[in-house]
Write a protein that binds this DNA or RNA. Structure first.
Lengths: 111, 111
DNA sequence: CCAAACTATATCACGACGCGATCTATCGCA
DNA sequence: TGCGATAGATCGCGTCGTGATATAGTTTGG
């Protein structure tokens, strides 16, 4: 839709994963699965193509920080840019409004 | 993503419009714009192609009920099916969880 | 000790979807 | 009469999600 700066659900999930700390691709996958109790399972095709697009948009970047223990040299770490944090907050705000509207339309309990 | 029965944001907006009463295409457009304070403006390309897909999915159907006043014979009215109401509630619930997660990641005020 | 499962990244092709542009036609109003 | 709003519809382009497939190192259970 013509909603400035809005993100797809996949992209928002990825930004949410990176909101608290840098993570690598596969780690993002597991964080999403864990956070959503296994309800959301992103495939690697979705993940890596979304990462490429997010890099191009400038909302994430490769991170040089790596864990001092349990590292794996194959990993590529990513982190939010300032624009990425702002984009994530904007999308969270939009979704919050959407949920409030759903509640007022009796689509949720305590509406 | 591999999230059973999930809807795109456009589709969810349309189902929300139909949650309280049947509406016609152009009416859905204006309801969305009004409900979101003009932040979301869906084009007719998005609208009518989404309506076709929602009809095919069986979540909306053409409605025979028409307003007794201020009608316009050009209009085509739509309403939610039982499956459509369930789908809208499911999506609202998923989005609510997503917003709660965003809040716990400090992406929203009062998090 | 070896196979299977897991970790990790990456690409491809297909289909679904968003979206602006464009078209046709009617309606309400000045 | 003429113009803007209402109303529905389609087209093509570009974006995106997705499963399949490939490659390869690591861990773990039997």
């Amino acid at each position: 839709m013509a909603t400035e700066g809005s993100l797809t659900t996949s992209m928002f999930h990825i930004l949410m994963s990176l909101a608290d700390r840098p993570r690598h691709g596969y780690g993002i996958l597991r964080e999403i699965e864990g956070r959503t109790d296994g309800e959301v399972r992103m495939g690697t095709g979705t993940l890596y193509s979304a990462i490429r697009r997010l890099l191009n948009k400038g909302v994430i970047r490769e991170s040089s920080s790596r864990p001092d223990t349990d590292d794996d040299e194959r990993r590529v770490y990513y982190e939010l840019t300032d624009e990425g944090l702002a984009a994530a907050r904007g999308e969270a705000r939009r979704l919050g409004l959407l949920v409030a509207q759903a509640r007022s339309k009796q689509l949720l309990p305590r509406g």
